[in-house]
């Protein structure tokens, strides 16, 4: 087992609304090994996004702590890339300049920026739309542009919140493949939130199932050899077994 890069210890997160306290996460513990691909599954409202927000440094835990490479997370960092569920492309920038944004902030030269942006735009299949504004794109295209922008920052840790949820099946498969290709052998760490069990098993080294307030319902390694072909893997014995187990865990958590 490699050393963990991200670690949540006894994390609690609650919000005060009126005179009530709403608990999103309680007693949450998770250690993510460096270079691993962890998929997180859970029903909506189980605190997945809250967990990612804290890991990214957007919000701080009410209690407990989250560490990145042993240091408490104080705020957002460029080495952690976070693809939120909401669309956050800058509406006044064209696709290309949106993708260039993280590099701009890192002080990368104009020519390098342009080249890298072009490569990434092609990677996500948006060539020909470099000069379009986000509003001129469909939801799925915006999602792909966001992904390209995320990768432009070259983050070592990727936090992805249902990145492919809004895409059609074919594109989804394509991008899953690309993501795996970018991850494999790169030493990057990925925390991938999804509500799709198949996607979780297809992509992850390890799958974590969260229940209400972030209770850990299941934490299993996915020991299926890579590369995993999406068609073959579905009939793989371990896949079927894990799929059943995950489904059962989700159901149990709902009670």
């Amino acid at each position: 087992m490699q050393s963990s890069i991200l670690e949540a210890t006894d994390v609690e997160k609650s919000f005060v609304k009126g005179d009530k306290r709403i608990v999103a996460l309680r007693g949450f513990n998770l250690a993510v090994a460096e270079g691993s691909f962890v998929t997180v599954v859970g029903r909506s409202g189980c605190g997945k996004s809250t967990m990612l927000n804290m890991m990214a440094g957007l919000t701080k835990p009410t209690a407990g702590q989250i560490t990145l490479r042993g240091e408490p997370v104080q705020g957002p960092r460029a080495e952690v890339g976070y693809l939120t569920q909401d669309d956050t492309l800058l509406p006044w920038r064209e696709v290309r300049r949106n993708v260039e944004m993280p590099m701009e902030l890192q002080g990368v030269g104009k020519r390098r920026r342009r080249e890298t942006a072009q490569e990434l735009i092609e990677l996500v299949g948006l060539q020909g739309f470099e000069k379009h504004y986000p509003r001129e794109l469909s939801g799925g295209m915006r999602r792909r542009a966001s992904l390209a922008r995320l990768l432009a920052g070259d983050p070592q840790t990727l936090l992805l919140d249902e990145p492919f949820g809004a895409l059609d099946a074919q594109l989804r498969t394509d991008l899953q493949v690309e993501l795996l290709r970018l991850w494999r052998g790169s030493g990057r760490t990925v925390v991938f939130v999804t509500h799709d069990l198949e996607e979780a098993l297809l992509l992850g080294d390890r799958v974590v199932v969260l229940g209400p307030v972030g209770r850990l319902l299941l934490d299993e390694p996915v020991e299926i050899a890579r590369p995993r072909d999406p068609d073959d893997v579905r009939v793989d014995e371990r896949f079927v077994h894990l799929h059943k187990k995950l489904g059962a865990a989700l159901k149990e958590g709902a009670l």
Binding site: G128, M141, D174, L175, Q176, V177, E178, R228
Partner: peptide, 22 residues
């Protein structure tokens, strides 16, 4: 980069998923 992990078609995602411009 290493060879694509699962890809069967190869290359970038199909561009057929973008609207046609003419």
């Amino acid at each position: 980069m290493t060879t694509p992990a699962v890809d069967t078609s190869g290359g970038a995602p199909s561009s057929g998923s973008t609207p046609l411009e003419e």
